[in-house]
Design a binder for these strands. Sequence first.
DNA 1: GTGGTCTAGACCACC
DNA 2: GTGGTCTAGACCACG
Lengths: 138, 138, 138, 138
Amino acid sequence: MPIPIKVAADSPEPMYHQIEVQLRGLIVSGQLAEGTLLPSIREMATDLNCSVITIRRVYQDLENEGLLRTRQGTGTFVAAVSVQDRQGYRTEAVKEAVQAAFETAKRVQFTREEMQQLLDETIEEWYPAAANPEKEDL
Amino acid sequence: MPIPIKVAADSPEPMYHQIEVQLRGLIVSGQLAEGTLLPSIREMATDLNCSVITIRRVYQDLENEGLLRTRQGTGTFVAAVSVQDRQGYRTEAVKEAVQAAFETAKRVQFTREEMQQLLDETIEEWYPAAANPEKEDL
Amino acid sequence: MPIPIKVAADSPEPMYHQIEVQLRGLIVSGQLAEGTLLPSIREMATDLNCSVITIRRVYQDLENEGLLRTRQGTGTFVAAVSVQDRQGYRTEAVKEAVQAAFETAKRVQFTREEMQQLLDETIEEWYPAAANPEKEDL
Amino acid sequence: MPIPIKVAADSPEPMYHQIEVQLRGLIVSGQLAEGTLLPSIREMATDLNCSVITIRRVYQDLENEGLLRTRQGTGTFVAAVSVQDRQGYRTEAVKEAVQAAFETAKRVQFTREEMQQLLDETIEEWYPAAANPEKEDL
DNA sequence: GTGGTCTAGACCACC
DNA sequence: GTGGTCTAGACCACG
């Protein structure tokens, strides 16, 4: 599995955006190392079952962000990103999503207890059971 | 301040959606009680500085969801919603946002510890530590 | 003449780039004031005799630069740009071109005198005769 | 240092073009005298860390312009160029670049004064003030 | 082979 | 009406 990216063609979220988010994640988390040659736009388009235009847009957007570097006739590479920037990207994305969740919670007047419980449950679900699954709320 | 809703005209999020989310929150959290008469479409449009078409769409969408009821010539009211539905709405929205946050975290390979710490910080920020956790519902 | 932009279809320079450069110039020089509504992408495409895709790209690139602001269903506007940024854009573009000219001159070993004379001639050509066209070289 | 040419692999400008411009400059300015034997394609490619195809193209383009001559099995030489042509090449390139700079200046509505000052500064920077302007030709 | 540009046309979302 | 996305396919430039 060359590039582990999945797109939901029926999602309201634009394909190009789904791909960008995932590719960005692979890069800033270091799963795609600096200098890695990405699949050609045509290859990627075939893999993900979409138009080359869509992939081109993805690559170009990420190049504009400084995460990719592309050379005509050669291919598209993962750019050199400072460790600092890399960390920035990583945490920024997660923080944003977490803030959004709390906004929603406040909007429907979730109490601290309700939110705490929901988060505890969810973290257990996504990062299953440490050896000693101690509750550390309050 | 009749209806506490704010729209950001320069946000990429469509106006109608910003308004819907907030209005839905006011209803399912009980801040707008059943039977409450909402401002007329024109009034609302003026208040929020947007087109009547936009408000019309909001009212209609929420009516389709069963949260509003329109009486010809009289106005638009908050519909009767079962306590059960109310709770469903509330938690569903928050759960969705929380799931999204965890997806993002996984994508950039946040560890359980990183996520736990971020959540702890954020809950402290949004629900400032009360020495003895009091319910602030309703 | 709504928007004074010209494209040379036979130039090796991509159309989208020709348009971007000119539109950017109109904005940063203040000829298109902040808040101005630009022609719709379809209108512009017809005017300039190119595809809507090409115009869309132009508008989007300039939006990414912060020079335009677009709202779906409404149109594309000249964004608020700080006077500072505006000046930055203006001089940067010219400086770049001037530097390029001097690089070329150095490359073919133009002497200072040759260059000085060429510049004097050219400035006279582009900014014709002040009342007392005094030579101020040396 | 056999041939003083530098290529920026990460520049948007195609390698072949970077090389052509510099090589052309070396020839028309007389830094590479008529009859000089250029490095072989393979050697040049190794030196500049690029493909032989790229160098092949460069040599061929310049041969088409009449600046180089290739002798089967012998190598590539700097061709005989009339003094007149030489001068033509030299000034043409610089004039073009200068025109481009003025176009940019006009586009952002630089005043004559702004342009004059920028040029004065830049010439001072590239041709640092000699008390008595000496020719540094050849 | 690679990426870069452009077309014509379609469908959707928004106002 | 507006902009936003996507397609299928073409042609060019680069290595």
